[in-house]
């Protein structure tokens, strides 16, 4: 089993993803430079956080045209696992692999802090290690994580079980206070119809060791690992 961590110019969570996969999840992983088009050797791809191309123009808008992205799209169409974290999520939206768009946080400020997430669908390759409605403690760090989708789109997401993580309080309550950025339906992470492409704003790679405040992030990667093993 091999994970690939895509490196765009300006990615800055690439190292953290690689470290967590190798040292905490214990899977084989390596970097994938954005100028390459060869991704067939991998079982899963990670689009890490950061500021690809400085987030100039619009978050994720330039990275989407990197040579590697056509291969990522093809890779996803084959049913292989793709996870986009933070800036990676934004790139997946721009690439059309996930529906919706990202707006600036409602307070118009960057926010970095631990938040709680409720697992809305535990039957996906990214969440099967968690229980239904389990509350995970995972940090966010973004300026543009205010997820938007129209009503019709939201209904589709709900119907197809595509909403995977929602912001909540530590006791699982979902209310306005628990929503850090103004996301529609308190959405923190969604997947595509086929459930093989996930985008999430919180950073699971930042909390794979209790020393860093939580190890709940491991559940996301362990879910992926189990899915690949069982395939």
């Amino acid at each position: 089993m091999k994970f690939g961590v895509v490196v765009f110019p300006g990615s800055n969570c690439d190292e953290d993803c690689l470290y967590s996969l190798k040292e905490e999840i214990r899977v084989n992983a390596c970097y994938v430079w954005h100028k390459t088009t060869q991704v067939n050797e991998f079982d899963a791809l990670v689009l890490p956080g950061g500021f690809s191309y400085g987030d100039y123009l619009r978050v994720g808008a330039i990275a989407r045209f990197s040579p590697v992205m056509n291969s990522v799209i093809e890779f996803a169409r084959k049913g292989k696992l793709v996870i986009g974290i933070c800036n990676g999520f934004q790139i997946l939206l721009e690439a059309g692999l996930l529906p919706g768009a990202m707006l600036r946080n409602r307070k118009l400020r960057f926010i970095c802090r631990y938040v709680h997430l409720k697992v809305s669908n535990e039957k996906t390759p990214f969440s099967q290690y968690a229980q239904k409605d389990e509350v995970l403690k995972i940090p966010i760090a973004h300026g543009e994580g205010n997820y938007y989708i129209d009503d019709k789109g939201l209904e589709e997401l709900k119907e197809n079980g595509q909403v995977i993580f929602r912001y909540c309080l530590s006791d699982g309550t979902i209310n306005d206070e628990s929503n850090p950025n103004g996301s529609v339906y308190d959405i923190a992470g969604i997947c595509n119809r086929d459930h093989n492409v996930l985008g999430m704003m919180p950073h699971p790679e930042r909390c794979c060791n209790p020393l860093l405040g939580s190890a709940d992030g491991k559940k996301v990667f362990q879910s992926m690992k189990r899915f690949i093993e069982e395939k």
Binding site: C112, R113, A141, R206
Partner: peptide
């Protein structure tokens, strides 16, 4: 000073063992 330090990404590189708000910041340089 949370409204200041929460505007800073203080966790990237996943070394930060004691987050801002305590007497000193502690980094576990892996």
């Amino acid at each position: 000073k949370h409204d200041i330090y929460e505007q800073y990404d203080h966790m990237v590189k996943t070394n930060t063992a004691v987050l801002p708000g305590s007497d000193a910041s502690v980094l576990w340089v892996k």
